[in-house]
Every structure is written in C-alpha cells, then in structure tokens.
C-alpha cells in the first residue's frame, strides 16, 4: 500500500493523529501538497457517496469530514507556497435550525457534508431567532443561509428569515436554501427562498449551484 493510500485510509477511519503524521511525512518526501489535497478530496467524495448509499453511517462520515477539515488546514500554507489554484477559502454558509425548533440532526448532517466539500460553515445551532440569523449572516459576510425546520409549526421561521431580509433590504446579498421534513419545493417558492433540498447530499449540490451562479467560487 502506498503512503497516499495509507493517508486515504486514515481519513476514512477518522484517525486525525495518523493523518497528520502521514501528511508531514509525505510532504517531507517532496510530494506536492496539491497532489495530497486532490487525493483527499477524491476520497471524501467517495466517502460521501458511500454515506448516500448507506454503505457507511453518520459516525464514519463525521470522522472523515472532521479529518479532512483538519488536514486541509495543515496543507493550506503549503498550497499557497506552491501557488496552487486549489481554492482553500471557499464560500461561507450560515446554517441554523429556525426559531422554536430544537431538532438538529438534519442540519448537522448537511454541515458535515458541506465541511467535507470544503465550504466554510458557521453553525448557529437550533432554536435560533430569525433576526439573529440575519445579523449573523451580515456579520460573517456569508454567501448563503441554510435553514432547517422539522415541524409544521416551525417552518414559519424560514418564511420569517426571508421576510426580514426583504424588510432590511438585504435579500440580494444572500442566497437562502431550506430543508426539513414538512417542507417542499412549493413551500420554498411560496416564501421566496432560492431553493429547497430533500436531503443532505442535494443540499450540498444546491449550495454549489447557487454559489457558482452567484460568482463566489
């Protein structure tokens, strides 16, 4: 097994310690950082696909996602030195479960996959006031706001965020995507969101599409 393969296996098992050691070793052997990063990004895509097919479960996906975030931090200065065109400061996304709703796992899975896809995610947690979400998006200079709601009685929080963005003349600054069990594309259209995602994998694809269209990435 090559060192690069060892690196990928360490990422799959979420062993950050071994991963860091191996990375340092490979770098010291003169292998370009961009080559390592490319391999890891390909590996995390495969892990994401395996999770989508339920060949692995959330804990394994979380471990791999945390691992790639850590390792890319280590690689970032080397990539700069190499003048790599690998984008290490991608678009910023604010994620929150809306006011009155304490269910987080759906949002957390989306965050795990977004992290794995190298988005810079700010997690505001659950039961977050609509105005606090808007203010956080401004403060963080976010490109996109992701809003989760699990109950029919809390999906109104998604509508309220869009309304506040309109009232505060900030709507054009942020793309807004929504998700959660009681929501659908019709609801997204009715409240004026930019998109709706049925699951975590489609949320990532939707975010990529909207951000590319916005011209951030």
């Amino acid at each position: 097994m090559t060192e690069k393969e060892n690196l990928i296996n360490a990422m799959k098992s979420g062993d950050i310690g071994s991963l860091l050691e191996l990375t340092e070793k490979i770098l010291s052997e003169g292998i370009p950082a961009v080559e390592i990063a490319d391999s890891l990004i390909q590996a995390i895509r495969e892990i994401g696909e395996a999770f989508e097919k339920f060949e692995i479960f959330l804990p394994e996906m979380m471990l791999a996602s945390d691992a790639i975030v850590e390792i890319l931090k280590v690689l970032e200065p080397r990539l700069k030195e190499e003048g790599s065109d690998l984008e290490m400061k991608p678009a910023k996304i604010i994620m929150a479960t809306v006011k009155g709703d304490i269910h987080e796992i759906g949002k957390n899975i989306v965050i795990t996959l977004l992290n794995a896809n190298r988005f810079d995610v700010v997690d505001l947690g659950s039961d977050v006031d609509s105005l606090d979400i808007v203010k956080a998006a401004e403060r963080e200079k976010a490109d996109l706001i992701g809003l989760s709601a699990l109950m029919t009685t809390t999906m109104l929080g998604q509508k309220e965020v869009v309304e506040f963005l309109n009232e505060m003349k900030l709507r054009e600054k942020f793309k807004v995507i929504i998700g959660g069990a009681p929501t659908n594309q019709d609801w997204a259209d009715r409240i004026g969101a930019d998109g709706w995602a049925n699951d975590a994998a489609s949320a990532v694809k939707l975010a990529e599409k909207l951000i590319n269209n916005k011209g951030v990435r």
């Binding site: 006011k99 009155g100 709703d101 109950m151 029919t152 009685t153 809390t154 109104l156 929080g157």
Partner: peptide, 14 residues
C-alpha cells in the same frame, strides 16, 4: 390527528 391551522392561521410554535 394534529392541527396545522387555528381559525385559519398557520400554527406557529411557542
């Protein structure tokens, strides 16, 4: 069965 509307208004949590 659960209610989603109360006198025509969508029920909002809390």
């Amino acid at each position: 069965p659960i209610l989603e509307y109360f006198f025509g208004r969508k029920i909002s949590s809390h």
